[in-house]
Structures are given as C-alpha cells and as structure tokens.
Amino acid sequence: MSNAFIDGLGALLAHTREEQGISQADAAQRLKLSVRQIEAIEAEDWPHLPGEVFRRGFVRNYARLLELNPDDLVRPVDTEATATHTITAPSEGLTIGRSPITRWVALPLAALLLFLLVVALLYQWLRQGEQALVSPVGLGETLEPPQAVTPAVPSPPAESPPVGGQQPLPATPETGEEGTVVLPLPLNPQPVSQPTSQPVSQPSADTAALGKAAAEPQGKPSPGSAPLRDAATSGNAARETRPAATEATVQVQSGGSAALRFSTSDDAWVQVLDGKGQRFSKLVRAGTQEQLSGQPPFKLVVGNAAQVKLTYNGHQIDLRPFIGEKVARLTLE
C-alpha cells in the first residue's frame, strides 16, 4: 500500500503543514476532506482511507495545498499500458483502402493456383486410368508360375512351330522386350465350331476366297488347312480392292501351338481368345510389336485395325476385309 508513496510521507506533510501554520481542520476544509482523513494521511493509516486511486489523489491535492511537488511524493503509477512503445502514423506512402495488389493480383493468382491444382489432379487421374487400361486383362488370374513356360515363339516365318508333344501346362505369360506372350497349349486341339459363321475347310480355299484381290508379297500359303471365320464382316470382303492389302493366310498347326504377331503403326487394342479359353488383351503401342502363341482357334478383336499388321505363323493376314467401323473381328483356326 505504501509503495505508492515515499517513505515518511505522513511526517513530511504534517511537518510542512505545521510550518505553514495551517491546522488540520483548515486543510480539511480547503481540500473538502474530513479531519479524520487528514489525520489518516499524516499517520499513513491507509486502511482508513478509500482505495489507492483516491489516496493518491488526496496526497497529491494535499501536497499542492502545501506547495510541495506532488511528483516528489507520489511514485508514478505502474501502468504497463503506458510503458510500451507508441508508434506514430507517418503519412508518407499512405495507402488507404484495399491495395491494388489484393484486388487485382491476389484473387486471380489464387484462382490460377486452384486451376493448376485441378489440372494436375485431372492429369494424375487420367494417367492412372491409362495404366489400368494398358495392363493385360485376365492373364494374371489364370496363368501360373514361370517354370511351366512354353518356349516363346520368336519372330516368324523362319521359326518352326513348337514341338507338338509338349505337355500342355498352363504358363504365366512371359512378356519379353518385344512383348511376347506365351499361352498354354493343349496336346490335341479341338477346333471351335462357330455356328453362325461359314467355315472354310479347304486348305487352299482361304487364299482363293480372300486373297483373290490381294497380292502375295511375302511367303507362300502353308500347306496345312487354315479355316478362317469372320463372324461379323465376312460380307465386306468384296469391298476390299486395294492391291496393297496383304494376304489373309490361315495356317493350322495340327497338334501344336500357333503364333500371332501384331505390329502397328498406331496404337491399337488387341484382344485374343484362344482355343483353351485363355484371354489376352493389350493396347499395342505404335511402332511396337506384340507376339503371342496359343492354341487355335483364336478369336480376335483388333481395334484400329487399319493400322495393324497381323502375322499368323509367319503369314501376313489382311485385316481389312474384316474391319467394321474401325474394329476387325475374326476367328483364326
């Protein structure tokens, strides 16, 4: 309580008052206080006076009455609020209101960032979808470990067909650098009957029927039978008049596997279902080759078929007669 005042305050005030010949009653009358309060101040009897604010005021007034400097008697009030630094407001470079940066730059910048974020997310999503599309469908579920792999069929036509007596073990497809996939082969393949199609059973009839307007730029027809079935577009063969078309050669590998080879000049979707029910689906990239072997008959669905060159056991097959919109559907036996 007494921290607000100097030591010996009461005695100093009383002494000064007596020196000036002022009575306590006179001082009380001039300060509008009671004599009791003057006595309390001089006795430093603070509990008998009101709160600290009032005590400081009374002492200050009393000091002024006695022509003392109040600041010498009353310690400065401890107001932390006044102790802190005060800043001034220089008017130089004054900008009032929303700054142009906020209005014209910040919001478009935020919108641009948001747009870029959306684009990045969309791109990521599309890439994920594309990767899922490219991965082979169904093979991983049906095929088995690589020790049962049938030897891959290298590029035709110099390659001889695989050995017919090999065990028809299911095999995991082995994708080499050129995309060779090997499908399991049975010992005794059974041709798949297609009730809705017209089988071509004569060994040389296929070349006669389909290759009549086509040149034979490479290879000769295989002596084996090669029934070719076109489920969807058999009637369109007559439309194909371009001499550049490759031959539609069908080759049957009796008791063995057959090799298919796709090469494309543009991305194309290929789906192959072999005689054992194994399915192979893949997007063949432009400029790449995809080779696979399996047990005939093969049901083929080739997207973007105009850009695809199909080789069946070393014989090129013209897909154009089988192209519907852009997709060729055919069966190779």
Binding site: K32, V53, F58, T79
Partner: peptide, 12 residues
Amino acid sequence: GLPVIVADDPLT
C-alpha cells in the same frame, strides 16, 4: 464541496 482528484495520466 466534494473532494475532486485528477486521475493518473488522464489522457489515456
């Protein structure tokens, strides 16, 4: 006729 005191730092 009443005591009147001025607060410390009256401006603030």
